[in-house]
Amino acid sequence: MKYNVQIDDAMRVVELLQLDDGLHVSVDGVGVEMDAEILQPGLLSLRVGKRSYHCWLDETPQGRRVVVEGRRLAYSVADPRQLRRGAHSGMEGGVAQMKAPMPGRVVNLLVQVGDAVEAKQGVVVIEAMKMQNELKAPKAGRVVRIHAAAGDTVQSGAVLVEIE
């Protein structure tokens, strides 16, 4: 089975072949001498050359990361099934949707429909877990729609503001 792994900023093609004499691994077409033990789902011991690595899978709402020696590297794996499903993104037709990253309360809207905004400009302040957080515009543009008002309670993933 071949996996196209986008890791950090790099791309690696990893091929895993389970044969009678064990697991064969190649990266970008080059065979790697190693052995792997999956300790638990998401927890792995790898021996590569002389080194022993402890790797674990960190899945958060922000994405998946593999942690190697305390270093967290964001990754995504493209296989044919995932490609067919299509990328999920807030950017459609040039409109960026700003979504509530968690359930909370809208404290303040810093923009109005029609306002021009800079990238990273504060747009909405939401309060959750006793902390106020400013959501920043993902790109420069114009505010085309606002779906929330100060005082509203919003669910995680609710679209708050759309910027074109």
Binding site: Y3, V5, D8, L44, L46, C55, V66, L73, Y75
Partner: peptide
């Protein structure tokens, strides 16, 4: 590290 992480990612996926 990249290689190890990529292998780990593929193994987790698999």
């Amino acid at each position: 590290e990249l290689m190890v992480a990529a292998i780990a990612a593929a193994l987790f996926e698999g």
